[in-house]
Simulated assay, not measured.
Amino acid sequence: MHTVQYTIPLATEAPIQILDVTETVREHHRQSGIRNGSLTLLSRHTTAFVNLNEREPRLQEDMLTHLKRLVPRDGDYRHNEAPVDGRDNAHAHLMGLFMNASETLPILDGELCLGQWQSIFFIELDGPRPERRLIAHFTGSRE
């Protein structure tokens, strides 16, 4: 049994941004040498998340529109009265209630088990941020 962990550095440029990290994760998978096992992706942030979904530009626009409608930035939120880091970001924390901080994918015969239309996204809800990190933790056999 082998374990390999990588930290994927990311920077975001928009208040809400969907970054496709699929190819970066696949490259780290190739480097890991894991043929059968699992990959756990973890965002160690409270306003940025991991998601599996379809990569289609109009759908991604719909996702952004939906999030903004669901939890408007200018809502009357108590967290914004005394924000921890000076950012009025209660809306980002509330959007995060509907997302996952981690995703786990099987690895079979050297391939990440993603569906035909699935991509791996890092979703920023409180950007722009010059430094974000995604942890990729691979566990399994190299045979």
Rank of each mutant, 00 (worst) to 15 (best):
L108W: 12
T22C: 05
G96F: 05
A136P: 05
T24I: 15
G37P: 10
S102A: 11
G33C: 09
T24N: 08
L52D: 10
A92S: 15
D74R: 05
F49T: 13
S43N: 10
L108V: 15
H29W: 07
L52E: 06
Q31C: 10
A82Q: 10
E131V: 11
I123P: 00
F121G: 09
E81A: 12
L125I: 02
V25G: 04
A90P: 01
T40Q: 14
R132V: 03
P128Q: 10
R133L: 11
M95N: 07
E27S: 12
S43W: 07
R87F: 11
E23F: 07
D20T: 00
E124I: 00
Q60W: 05
L67Y: 09
N89L: 04
R26F: 08
K68A: 13
N100R: 13
H45T: 06
R26H: 12
F138A: 07
H79K: 00
Y77D: 03
G115K: 08
M95T: 02
I135A: 10
D85P: 00
I135G: 01
I120Q: 07
H29K: 14
R26K: 15
N100D: 12
T104M: 12
A101Y: 11
L42E: 03
K68D: 04
Q116E: 14
P57F: 04
R87K: 14
E56I: 02
Q118R: 09
L94D: 02
V50E: 06
T46E: 12
L39F: 10
D88E: 14
E27C: 04
M63A: 05
D76P: 01
R26W: 10
H66K: 11
E54Q: 12
E27R: 12
E111M: 13
Q116G: 13
H137Q: 12
G110H: 06
E81Q: 13
W117Y: 14
R78E: 09
G96E: 06
T46I: 06
G127I: 07
R87H: 15
L42F: 15
D20G: 01
R132W: 01
S119G: 08
S43C: 12
R87M: 11
N100F: 04
H66G: 09
H137S: 14
L67D: 00
E56S: 05
S43Y: 07
D62W: 02
G75A: 09
T40H: 07
L39S: 06
R44E: 13
Q118Y: 05
I120K: 09
H79W: 03
D20V: 03
K68G: 02
L70V: 05
F49G: 03
Q116N: 13
I123W: 01
L112D: 10
D126M: 01
M99P: 03
G127F: 06
L59W: 09
E131S: 11
